[in-house]
Nucleic acid binder design. Structure first.
Lengths: 210, 210
DNA sequence: CTCGCCGTCAGGGTTTTCCCTCAGGCGATT
DNA sequence: AATCGCCTGAGGGAAAACCCTGACGGCGAG
């Protein structure tokens, strides 16, 4: 019996293309979803062997869907499909128990290989992704989530929403120097060169609306 | 002789999927590009019948690539492939001479239909897009003060990706003062108070990745 | 052929960000 | 008790962003 695969991506065009790619490899695509919730629903019904989930989907993103699917169908191997190679995403996903992490910029064979590997009980990460992980290991002997404190996250949201340091100080009832201090710490922890990096991070994490 | 198609998308996986979709329809995919510049280079060499360009690509986006391709190969019909249905960009693309505007959330048949339509000399817009266009036409008497020029959009992308004004000037081969000038105009047109607003706008419009 | 928009560049100004260092209080962990 | 992380705050300086004004050549529309 062929391997049963669930495919989730909000772009129907991309989804169909991937379906063709997988079918050509002899895989049985048993379901397609356009968002995370639909993916969870379909997975709950069929509990496929593999669930290939796009990271950036509306309603519920790939990571959220992965969490729920792995709870209801522990035997389903989840592979995340993503546009970016950000190491923090990978760490979060791996910590959650995702079996594969594949970047869309890679050749389709990468996804096919990922599926066969996770079916054998192994974990598969796209070359670029694993390289990032290795570099992270070498750089700091331990993989650190580099999490922001709650206060820093609060400041982060305000910065990303366009507030100046002075405004933030006023809003939080602290001195400008303190707000500035938080801002500096955020830049350090995120390894961002400037405000633009802060905003992109905040949006990626869903901390602010668009 | 089969229709010759150039395919440009930064995600190799998506690109391959689309290639399969198009080949299944009897189309001849004569080239694949991972960014706008590569697409322009390949198009200049082969001048295909149709160029299917993803909007959100690194180095040069789909609209920029479309502009250059249409200059060097006037006979090549350009179809933009995009994640978003933003009316402003549709209008700009149409004004530029793009023959098709297809949204990735649509079924693959939408792209196939678009190709056959533009080959017949017609214009094709995805259903959701054309509805927005009609609405825009109806409300046309109003002026759009916040429409960015192509140069401004170029600067916008660099700002949003974290580049400083000095770096942007170097990258574009213009003076720092000119880059600063563009930056100022962007802030005005977007009614944004600072960099954060620029980044959020760029991400909303899908002009930069993550 | 004007007129306006675009892209180019400049001077000169204020404000904000970015980057150091340093330090006290406070709560939790060791 | 001592240490550590977090929040708080400050001084001071370099860089970048922000905001005016003004200018000039090009190019397309009226």
């Amino acid at each position: 019996m062929a391997t049963r695969v669930l495919l989730a991506d909000d772009h129907a065009m991309v989804r169909q293309g991937l379906r063709l790619l997988l079918q050509r490899e002899g895989l049985d695509v048993v379901g397609e979803a356009a968002d995370g919730q639909e993916a969870v629903r379909l997975a709950t019904e069929s509990c496929p062997d593999v669930a290939v989930l796009d990271y950036g989907m509306p309603v519920m993103n790939g990571l959220g869907a992965a969490r729920e699917i792995m709870q209801t169908c522990p035997l389903t191997k989840v592979i995340l499909l993503t546009m970016h190679t950000d190491d923090r995403y990978v760490l979060e996903a791996v910590r959650l128990g995702v079996k594969g992490y594949v970047v869309k910029t890679q050749a389709p064979t990468d996804l096919v290989r990922a599926i066969s590997e996770v079916l054998r009980g192994l974990m598969y990460l796209s070359p670029r992704v694993s390289r990032l992980l290795v570099e992270a290991y070498l750089a700091k002997s331990e993989v650190r989530p580099d999490r922001l404190t709650s206060r820093e996250r609060e400041v982060l949201q305000l910065v990303a929403s366009g507030k100046t340091t002075k405004e933030i100080a006023g809003l939080l009832g602290i001195s400008v120097k303190t707000a500035e201090s938080h801002r500096t710490h955020i830049l350090r922890k995120l390894e961002a060169p400037n405000t633009a990096g802060i905003v992109r991070y905040a949006i990626r994490q869903g901390l602010i609306q668009d």
